[in-house]
Design a protein around this nucleic acid. Structure first.
Length: 817
RNA sequence: GCGAGAGUGGCGGAACUGGUAGACGCGCCAGAUUUAGGAUCUGGUAUGCUUCGCGUGUGGGGGUUCGAGUCCCCCCUCUCGCACCA
């Protein structure tokens, strides 16, 4: 009977669901392996990216289980977030119903692919028993002073009355209603991730098995910068203006100061400024510019404010400008401008005819003869810098920091681009922030015993009037836990990145109701040995999750510093050279493919087409090829049932000829496939070598006894090695032909090397002949063989051999003159 | 602009430590089977030439080496990330 995946696959899936062979328990007698894949958002359908991601993880999990590891391989749902809420606004259906329906559909799809998850550990972040621990952690952080409330400006749609993420406010208009987006100051909850910035940066060096590009992205994201804060007095408004600079050594060359157009002091300055109208016009112009416009142009735009700042080192007054290139988001939103030594300041000074004063020279005694044509940004030696003249930049930085500090107008400091994490969302479908506002007691945390603070059900989803939670009377009004008086609940919910920060610890004890997870389980299972997911999470999720691990460690729940030993970021699945998307109409649905080719063939093709980190182009023909291969393997057993079934002992020591060659190929393959999976995760070459082994087996004419026994053994081991890739077929073959396909074949190292090799003979580096030779021959023997070759001896005739280079078991190069 | 990575047949890719370039698969060509198509099986498939052989070939140019896809320098192209970061 032909290989009927449509019948075989569902049968095994059902059996796995019933018998739970992938259920695992802590067992300290076994070596553990925690294989984790990024959990999906329940969008309703699995897509090809998931198939690829989870197929990679499944191969590693199954392989290591077969090798006797205790493998934890869980799956769950990142179930909160905006899409469900937006769907609720459209359909009126509660996000919960919507989400649980989606989870059900997607769980079925994952099961259709035959993934070896321990489904008993499944979690969903929208379950109150899950998100109560988000709340618990929030309270813990609150206790430790790691959260605070702060006003920050956010994108605000006045018609939807909600906060928009940057990508929802592109072009300055709301993605849903097209209203102009405003910047609005809102009180929000922030988490002090910057307290851990230094550790998050330094510990990247402790992650040798993370891809370099991800670490580079995180370093850049954290953006450590050593410099100084310096205060310039603004006599006109009687205020101090703090600037951040990495080049305090150039401060004697500061000829003006620039503020971001939205700097808070601008309001005060315009009150006293003769340039008030010009300032207002400039600020409005800048606010109107969209993000794209700002990014597209590097033209320097500025406006004199009419007031002056006092340089604390020179005591001189220099003009204060507004400038488009100064960003409120970085540093203090104000810079001292040194046009001689900063290219941006140089361009600005040229445009607005401001003085350019060099204060750094490359070496002592150097003079700039001509006017500068560009800024000299290199460090060097100070000139025109009062008592600091003659010092090197490095010496000056230190001395000047000391001077500033003792003078009370500055200090050396380290800043980060990483900002504290704003976790407030004016949304319904997220974890309620467990805080109560009382008129008498102020901000009161919800007592731990009252957790979880559940999302209310008496809400209306209109899409207007802000968060739907505001429509819930039962939620809004509560009693103050401290004084019992009337109080109001926090209506903001948490960023969903909070949910995904620690979910893989919840898998360890998913139903525990006394703590987020069991610390003994954690001591056994953590860290995650392999984490597979998309590179799009390189910064956000993967920084937050590293941060949370450090937090939980400091709370005493974990003993590790880093959550993930090895990280793999898999490439996208594309079609016709482009990302799959609905708008391009090139989406390939995994269900269709499973129906057409079967889950095993889809998995094999996905893994065979490319190594994990590369992009992969979906091609139906590729899946056909994978199916063809599986078919041939299946048919071999059909045609050679007796050989496959009959396990005959044979003496490996007496193997010779074809049977030895075949047996050696088997063990070479066992070694290669194991290596490819375990060390390199190059599943494409692992599959290729399985194909090679099968090609050799099927090309071998099997007639007499020993060869039959060897061929049977080879076939059975081939099926075992196919198990991680094509588990349905391998399981079925094992059962049909009565052998245990669930153990990884044992490697006989002595057979993993062939006993002959192709000796490549080169003359002056050019290949002249290839000779079959015994493994382990000496250089002299190799030379003797080469000399016997007609082609080689013809090359050598009448010439002197200057040098012989012999690479054992590979090649002989003769250098002649 | 800065940072990371990549350029190998018609295509996806292989070559792991400097040692046979193109494994394995797709596609294509030819043959077998078939009424036909599909499926299957067998063989071929980098390229040039004076074709049982010889030469050339891993984005381009140079270098190190007995030997370079692999190491070094310069250049080109592409992908990803960040981007007026003070």
């Amino acid at each position: 009977m032909a290989y009927n995946f449509a019948e075989i696959e569902p049968r095994w899936q059902k059996r796995w669901a019933e018998e739970k062979p992938y259920k695992v328990k802590r067992d300290s007698s076994k070596k553990k392996f925690y294989c984790l894949e990024m959990l999906p958002y329940p969008s309703g359908r699995i897509h090809m990216g998931h198939v690829r991601n989870y197929s990679i993880g499944d191969v590693v999990s199954r392989f290591l289980s077969m090798k006797g590891y205790n493998v934890l391989h869980p799956m769950g749902w990142d179930a909160m977030g905006m899409p469900a809420e937006n769907a609720a606004i459209k359909s009126g259906r509660h996000p919960r119903e919507h989400t649980y329906d989606h989870m059900k559909m997607m769980r079925a799809q994952l099961q259709n692919l035959g993934f070896s998850y321990d489904w008993d550990r499944e979690i969903a972040s929208c379950d109150p028993e899950y998100y109560r621990w988000n709340q618990w952690m929030f309270l813990k952080m609150m206790e430790k002073g790691l959260v605070y409330r702060h006003r920050r400006s956010v994108n605000w749609c006045p018609s939807c009355r909600t906060v928009l993420a940057n990508e929802q406010a592109e072009g300055g208009t709301c993605w849903r209603c097209d209203s102009d987006v405003e910047l609005k100051e809102l009180e929000q909850w922030f988490v002090r991730i910057t307290d851990y910035a230094e550790e998050l940066l330094n510990d990247l060096d402790e992650l040798p098995l993370w891809p370099e590009n991800v670490k580079a992205m995180q370093r850049h994201w954290i953006g450590r910068s050593e410099g100084s804060f310096v205060e310039f007095r603004l006599p006109a408004v009687d205020e101090g203006l703090e600037v951040f600079t990495t080049r305090i050594d150039t401060i004697f060359g500061a000829t003006f100061v620039c503020l971001a157009p939205n700097h808070p002091l601008v309001k005060k300055i315009r009150e006293v400024s003769p340039e008030r109208e010009a300032i207002d016009a400039f600020v409005i112009k800048m606010n109107r510019m969209s993000r794209e416009e700002r990014l597209a142009s590097t033209e320097k735009l500025g406006q004199f404010t009419g007031i002056y700042a006092v340089n604390p080192f020179t005591k001189e007054e220099i003009p204060v400008y507004l400038a488009n290139f100064v960003l409120m988001e970085y540093g203090t939103g104000a810079v001292m401008s040194v046009p001689a030594h900063d290219q941006r300041d140089f361009e600005f000074a040229k445009k607005y005819k401001l003085p350019i004063l060099p204060v750094i020279v490359p070496e002592p005694g150097f003079h700039y003869d001509n006017e500068l044509t560009e800024a000299v940004e290199a460090t060097g030696v100070l000139v025109n810098s009062g008592e600091f003249s003659g010092l090197t930049s490095d010496e000056a930085k230190q001395k000047m920091n000391e001077t500033a500090e003792s003078g009370g107008f500055g200090r050396g400091a380290v800043t980060y681009k990483l900002k504290d994490w704003g976790i407030s969302r004016q949304r319904y479908w997220g974890t309620p922030i467990p805080v109560i506002y009382c008129d008498n007691c102020g901000i009161v945390p919800v007592p731990e015993a009252d957790l979880p603070v559940k999302l209310p059900d008496d809400v209306v989803f209109t899409g207007e009037g802000g968060s739907p939670i505001l429509t819930s009377e039962s939620f809004l009004h509560t009693a103050c836990p401290k004084c019992g008086g009337n109080a109001r609940r926090e209506t903001d919910t948490m960023d969903t990145f909070m949910d995904s920060c620690w979910y893989y610890y919840r898998y360890l004890s998913p139903r525990l109701d006394t703590a987020p997870f069991d610390t003994e389980e954690a001591a056994y299972w953590t860290p995650v040995d392999l984490y597979i997911g998309g590179v799009e999470h390189a910064t956000m999720h993967l920084i937050y999750t590293r941060f949370f691990t450090k937090l939980l460690r400091d709370f005493g729940l974990l003993k590790i510093d880093e959550p993930v030993k090895k990280l793999v970021t898999q490439g996208m699945v594309i079609k016709d050279g482009r990302k799959m998307s609905k708008s391009l109409g090139n989406v390939v649905d995994p269900d269709d493919m499973i129906q057409k080719y079967g889950a095993d063939a889809v998995r094999v093709f996905m893994l065979f087409a490319s190594p994990p980190e590369k992009e992969i182009e979906w091609k139906d023909q590729g899946a056909e090829g994978a199916l063809r291969f599986l078919n041939r393997v299946w048919n071999f057993a059909e045609n050679n049932g007796e050989i496959v079934k009959t396990e005959t002992e044979f003496d490996t020591a007496t193997l010779a000829g074809k049977e030895k060659k075949l047996f050696q190929k088997l063990h070479q393959t066992i070694a290669k496939v194991g290596d490819d999976i375990e060390k390199r995760l190059h599943l494409n070459t692992a599959i290729a070598s399985l194909m090679e082994l099968f090609n050799l087996l099927s090309a071998t004419e099997i007639k007499e006894g020993v060869l039959k026994a060897v061929a049977g053994a080879v076939y059975r081991d081939l099926v075992r090695m196919l198990m991680p890739f094509a588990p349905h077929m391998a399981s079925e073959l094992g059962e049909l032909y009565g052998f245990d396909a669930s153990r990884w074949p044992e490697l006989k190292q002595e057979f993993a090397v062939a006993d002959t090799f192709t000796l490549v003979v080169q003359v002056n580096g050019k290949i002249k002949d290839k000779i079959e030779a015994e493994q382990g021959i000496s250089a002299d023997e190799a030379f003797r063989l080469a000399a016997e070759s007609e082609r080689v001896s013809a090359e050598l005739a009448g010439r002197n051999i200057v040098k012989k280079i012999y690479v054992p078991n590979r090649l002989l190069n003769l250098v002649v003159k």
